[in-house]
């Protein structure tokens, strides 16, 4: 997935502009809460698990957060209280909430890309 904005779900909703705009507003709100640089790192970490292309992000992100993000696609029920507490301590509560939404949403978007949701919807 090469674009920060847009993505397979937004593309699939091209014929439903009202829903597409609301989805993009939700996605943007989540991204804005975390900052695009951190979002790019999360995207890259999750994309690698799914085998989906993603641009190399700028700068650095806490490895503890990226390791947690890599668990989201296939191991979300196995994340321990200790792992969550470590990321929470790193990010603080407000950003941990945004991080949880961004990571879960990006996992779902990768999956939508892998079934070619946009192609099926055109």
């Amino acid at each position: 997935m090469s674009e920060t904005k847009s993505g397979p779900v937004t593309a699939a909703l091209a014929g439903s502009p009202a829903l597409g705009a609301k989805f993009e507003a939700f996605r943007s709100a989540a991204h804005d809460a975390l900052g695009e640089e951190m979002v790019a790192h999360i995207r890259r970490a999750i994309s690698e698990v799914h085998g989906v292309d993603a641009p190399v992000p700028m700068g650095e992100a806490p490895e503890i957060m990226l390791a947690y993000a890599r668990r989201m696609p296939f191991e979300h029920t196995a994340i321990t209280d200790e792992e969550a507490a470590a990321v929470l301590a790193e990010l603080g509560e407000e950003k941990f909430v945004a991080f949880s939404v961004v990571a879960a949403l990006f996992d779902a978007e990768c999956r939508a890309e892998k079934v070619d949701l946009a192609g099926l919807s055109s």
């Binding site: 779900v9 014929g15 979300h76 939404v101 879960a104 779902a108």
Partner: peptide, 24 residues
Amino acid sequence: PEQIAELGLGLTLFLALAKALITM
């Protein structure tokens, strides 16, 4: 196609919501 798009949106939200809820 429009129904598939809406289903895809729903699945994206259901999945993300469930995983965010569980991991928090």
